[in-house]
Simulated assay, not measured.
Amino acid sequence: MGAWGPGLFSDDLACDVRDEYRELIEDGATDEEARRRVVESYSEALDDPGEAPVFWLALAVTESKLGRLDAVVRDRALGIIERGDDGPGVGVQEEGSRLPGCRFHGSRRHDRTSPGR
Rank of each mutant, 00 (worst) to 15 (best):
E40V: 06
S114I: 05
P6E: 12
G87L: 08
W4R: 15
R18V: 02
D27I: 01
W56D: 00
R103F: 03
R117N: 09
D19E: 10
E20T: 10
D86L: 14
G89I: 07
S43M: 09
A71V: 07
L8N: 02
C15F: 09
R109L: 11
A60Q: 00
V39L: 11
G79F: 00
I80Y: 02
H110V: 15
R109Q: 12
G5K: 10
T62Q: 00
A77T: 02
A60V: 00
G50M: 09
R109T: 03
R108Q: 12
R37E: 14
D48W: 09
S64D: 07
H110G: 13
G2I: 08
A3P: 01
G67P: 01
S64E: 07
A29E: 13
M1A: 15
A60S: 04
S41M: 09
L78A: 14
R103W: 04
L13Y: 06
Q93I: 09
F104C: 14
A52K: 10
R37G: 02
L46R: 12
D16C: 10
G67F: 00
E23G: 11
R37F: 03
L24A: 09
L13T: 06
L99C: 10
E63A: 03
E44A: 13
R36L: 10
W56F: 14
E20H: 10
A60N: 00
Q93T: 13
G67L: 00
